[in-house]
């Protein structure tokens, strides 16, 4: 390690004697001269820097004190305004406590500490040849001591044992981590013949006569809250109910699946499963806010834009004796994102 304040100053110009005598490349001119700071030359400036450092530490102390006071004076309260005041006061206290220390330490280092650059040698990472030879020798000695080279069966047994021992843990983990591993559940929802369509989240049954043209209803099956795992069922069973002027309906996914212009589609996007819910009643388009797949509900919910491929599955519906909308059956295909064995 060496300081180099007095590093030589290289000449300004290349001395032009003769083209042949010049080196192929420029040479490193060596360290630049050290420029003293104001504080190095002027005692007053030095003292001033010291006072700034002290002031910054003081700001930090005040910040901490402010935090302690604010903690007791401004509790979070019950309104957003009180919460914001508490958060702001505590946060500013903490921020100043930290920023004070940080700026003080850095200003100290920059203005008051020795600013002469130092240089340290580097060495190649590679060990020298002797060390390498020594290392190989040591390993050879160890291998010879264990006699592993001569004992093939032992070696095989050891490797097999080591390779097998994680299996019990892996098996137990894989066996349980998917709970029942019943992937068939993906293909069914809780809709069945006669299940009433009810509003989400309240659960009111829906009369067909109440569904006016241009309206959209967010629907869950009746009895959802009685399921053992309502959210798991809801994640598959949510439906969007809309009514179009029957003259506007170009195509449906099944004959007789709608009732008097009332259509029900799965709300779960066939792309990656976001709820598709933006219904533009003038164009009959359904838009997914996550990735903008757009479905035309007048045309069997076919995809007209975006990353989804398949139409949203349609739920066949009809009305019961009391005029309430009910499902004719479950969906005729799995709802939601595609998966490998979807069609099997």
């Amino acid at each position: 390690m060496s300081t180099h304040d007095n590093g030589h100053e290289a000449g300004h110009d290349v001395v032009v004697h003769d083209g042949d005598a010049l080196p192929a490349r420029f040479e490193n001119p060596g360290f630049e001269k050290h420029h003293p700071r104001m504080g190095d030359l002027d005692e007053h400036a030095n003292k001033k820097s010291e006072r700034i450092v002290v002031a910054l530490f003081t700001i930090s102390i005040l910040g901490t004190l402010f935090f302690l006071i604010a903690y007791f004076v401004w509790p979070p309260g019950t309104t957003p305004v009180e919460m914001r005041r508490s958060n702001l006061a505590l946060g500013l206290g903490l921020a100043f406590a930290l920023l004070g220390i940080g700026t003080a330490a850095i200003h100290w280092a920059k203005a008051l500490m020795n600013d002469h650059e130092k240089s340290e040698e580097r060495h190649e990472q590679r060990s020298d040849d002797d060390t390498r030879a020594g290392a190989i020798e040591v390993l050879k000695d160890g291998a010879a001591d264990s006699a592993i080279g001569r004992r093939g069966v032992l070696k095989g047994a050891m490797i097999t044992a080591l390779a097998l021992f994680p299996l019990p843990i892996v098996l137990a983990l894989i066996g349980n981590i998917g709970e029942d591993w019943n992937i068939g559940q993906l293909k069914h929802t809780m809709w069945k013949k006669g299940t009433r369509l009810t509003t989400d989240p309240v659960g009111r049954p829906v009369k067909a006569s109440d569904v006016t043209i241009g309206s959209v209803w967010h629907i869950i099956p009746e009895g959802l809250d009685k399921e053992p795992h309502p959210l798991d069922e809801k994640a598959k069973a949510v439906v969007l109910l809309l009514r179009l002027d029957p003259r506007d309906i170009k195509r449906e996914q099944g004959v007789g699946w709608s009732y008097d212009g009332i259509l029900a589609f799965s709300k779960i996007c066939t792309h990656v499963g976001c709820p598709v819910a933006l219904y533009e009643q003038q164009t009959h388009h359904l838009l997914c806010p996550c990735h903008q797949s757009t479905f035309d509900v007048a045309d069997g919910a076919k995809v007209i834009f975006g990353p989804a491929k398949r139409p949203l599955p349609q739920l066949p519906i009809t009305v019961d004796d009391e005029g309430y909308l009910v499902a004719q059956s479950d969906f005729h295909q799995p709802v939601g994102p595609s998966f490998w064995e979807r069609l099997k």
Binding site: I174, N182, F339
Partner: peptide, 27 residues
């Protein structure tokens, strides 16, 4: 849910990957 959709898209083992993540059906 999007992560689940992506897991489901993995060929062959996607469905199992989703069950592994969520401990069964989503969520």
């Amino acid at each position: 849910r999007i992560a689940d959709g992506v897991a489901l898209a993995v060929p062959i083992i996607g469905t199992y990957a989703s069950y592994l993540l969520f401990g069964g059906q989503f969520p």
